[in-house]
Design a protein around this nucleic acid. Structure first.
Length: 538
RNA sequence: GAGGGCGUAGCUCAGAGGUAGAGCAACGGUCUUUUAAACCGUGGGCCGUGGGUUCAAUCCCCACCGCCCUCACCA
């Protein structure tokens, strides 16, 4: 019989039922295909006999789930008391604790079965422990249930702590509870999950399959917590300001636009935190900060995600020097927490963030690395053409900025403060009285990336209005409602002289977790919607 | 937005103008101390989607979709 089976195509009329290529025996059956009998062991179509429909792994697991229900076992258990974290159990092993009873819960990540006994690896948030399950220890009925337990399921286990003859600390189980049956398989145990698209779209799988990913996001979480503690300890008050703005301000990025139905009002997602925080400075919050998401409608690449986490803080009666001290202290503190020191690897390079950081003049760096000054437009264009950078339609300030990115930034590997940008590049920043035309601003660079930006804040309302009008393109734009009159009114009420600082937390986390792209430090980076394809698959 | 690369089984990857393979995972079996368990056996594929060339396309050509890289836009 088997010898007569051959492969064949599945005719279109039955392909939609899930039949794919199957074995058939042309002599065995001559019935017509009957669409009402899809459960039959064979399907006949014009003389051909097709095998059973293909059972996917999901369907196989569903069968186990049904079998469990028939055994009276709830495959989706409820509250499970008494389980402690796994890591301390493993750590607790000693001559004294040998044979002591423990209860743990976690996900089965490996299963090695020996007929009437099995080893499984059980993992929870803290670690992994080997479980030994033996028919004689569990009893006949539980053993039947155990036959339907597999990799990926969540399990609660009670057992005696001990060591196997190969020396591995193991919980010799006496009782187990199925907590959740997994219907989908886990990624492969050895190579894990590599496809970046699946890793980002189904981060839960990435987190299960790749322990390093989990470490990265745990570290991110701790860094944010530490940042808050650091600032609280210095008297900064955390606030939450609106994410939806009628006028997007505080940076020069394109915003996302949305609409409020009841108000019939156009709104923008915030591109910066600066404006409302400065209003709070006026209101008497003298040291204030916010850690929050901002949204910029720009391109996406290795260090830009459309939404990212920004820290901004303002310090009344301080200035740029205040912010330098604070930035050095915060970043080196975070580096010590994350890496144990202030020198650490980032990709191929080694990065240093030990204070004090070098303070370099923007124009000096420009001359040093590009050999040009900021006023010589032709020379700037020539430098950019050397690197095949398009220069058409760029203003002089744009040219300067581009030359800086192209020629200077790659040299700024260890933490460096760059100060004295052309004042046109920073409309919310005071001019440096000792360097006319240059802003009292710094940008801090690490690993060639800008990670912080700070000003001695402009608090002169007249000067501020002039600069915003300039930036908005003259009075016409101002009249069109682009000028934030309430911000100017706040400054007229009197904002204390202040230092202000912004830190791109995602980039800082990248550096401190040695992550090559921002997507590795954002749990769910923005990807294009898969639309129908994704819905169909479900 | 431009250029380049990639898309094959649940996962990691081979492959070649003649309708596809491996390892792991799955299913059946042997196995009561293994750890990438082993051994025997079985099933599993709209080869991203749609068109075109061809006797024949998963492979060649075109378009589209998605991801990655470089550039552009941009802190």
């Amino acid at each position: 019989m088997r010898g007569s089976l051959e492969r064949c195509f599945v005719p279109a009329p039955i392909r939609h039922l899930g039949f794919s290529q199957a074995r058939f025996d042309a002599t065995a059956c001559h019935q017509e295909y009957n669409p009402h009998l899809p459960q039959m062991g064979c399907i006949c179509y014009k003389g051909a006999v097709f095998g059973s429909p293909t059972m996917t792994e999901r369907e196989e697991r569903t069968k186990h789930l049904e079998a469990l229900r028939e055994l009276g076992v709830d495959p989706y258990g409820t509250r499970f008391d008494g389980a402690g974290p796994i890591a301390p159990v493993v750590a607790a092993y000693s001559v004294e604790t040998e044979g002591r009873q423990y209860t743990v819960a976690g996900r089965i990540t490996a299963l090695r079965s020996y007929g009437k006994a099995a080893f499984l690896d059980l993992r929870d948030a803290t670690g992994k422990i080997q479980i030994y399950a033996r028919k004689d220890d569990l009893g006949d009925t539980p053993w039947k249930t155990f036959q339907h337990v597999g990799i990926g399921d969540l399990l609660g286990v009670t057992g005696k702590l001990g060591k196997t003859k190969t020396g591995e600390i193991t919980l010799f189980s006496t009782r187990f509870t199925l907590l959740t049956k997994a219907l989908r398989p886990l990624p492969e145990k050895w190579h894990g999950l590599r496809d970046p698209e699946v890793r980002y779209r189904q981060r839960y799988l990435d987190l299960i399959a790749n322990p390093k990913v989990r470490e990265t996001f745990l570290r991110r979480s701790r860094l944010i917590t530490t940042t808050r503690a650091f600032l609280e300890a210095r008297g900064y008050v955390e606030v939450e300001t609106p994410m939806m703005h009628a006028i997007p301000g505080g940076a020069a990025a394109r915003p996302f636009v949305t609409h409020h139905n009841a108000l019939d009002a156009k709104l923008f997602l915030r591109i910066a935190l600066e404006i409302p925080l400065k209003k709070l400075l006026v209101g008497g919050f003298e040291r204030v900060y916010e850690i929050g998401r901002v949204f910029r409608n720009e391109g996406i690449d290795a260090n830009h995600n459309p939404e990212f986490t920004l820290l901004e803080l303002y310090h009344a009666y301080g200035d740029l020097r205040t912010m330098m001290d604070l930035t050095e202290a915060l970043v080196s503190h975070l580096a010590r927490e994350a890496t144990g020191g202030t020198r650490f690897p980032f990709g191929e390079r080694e990065i240093g963030v030990e204070p004090p950081w070098p303070r370099r003049d923007y124009l000096e760096l420009l001359r040093e690395h590009a050999g040009v000054g900021p006023k010589d437009e032709d020379a700037l264009r020539a430098k950019l053409r050397e690197r095949k950078v398009e220069t058409a339609g760029l203003s002089r300030v744009d040219l300067v900025d581009k030359v800086f990115s192209e020629y200077v930034e790659p040299h700024l590997q260890s933490a460096t403060f760059v100060t004295g940008h052309p004042v046109e590049m920073a409309p919310l920043c005071k001019e440096d009285p000792s360097r006319p035309g240059q802003a009292d601003r710094f940008e801090a660079y690490i690993a060639g990336m800008e990670i912080a930006n700070a000003y001695t804040e402009l608090n002169d309302p007249v000067e501020q209005r002039r600069r915003l009008v300039d930036q908005a393109g003259g009075d016409e734009m101002a009249r069109a409602g682009r000028l934030d009159e309430d911000f100017l009114r706040a400054l007229e009420t009197g904002m204390p002289p202040a230092g202000g600082l912004g830190i791109g937390m995602d980039r800082l986390v990248m550096i401190l977790t040695n992550s090559p792209t921002v997507r590795e430090v954002i749990l769910f980076p923005l990807l294009r919607d898969m639309g129908a394809a994704a819905e169909e698959e479900s």
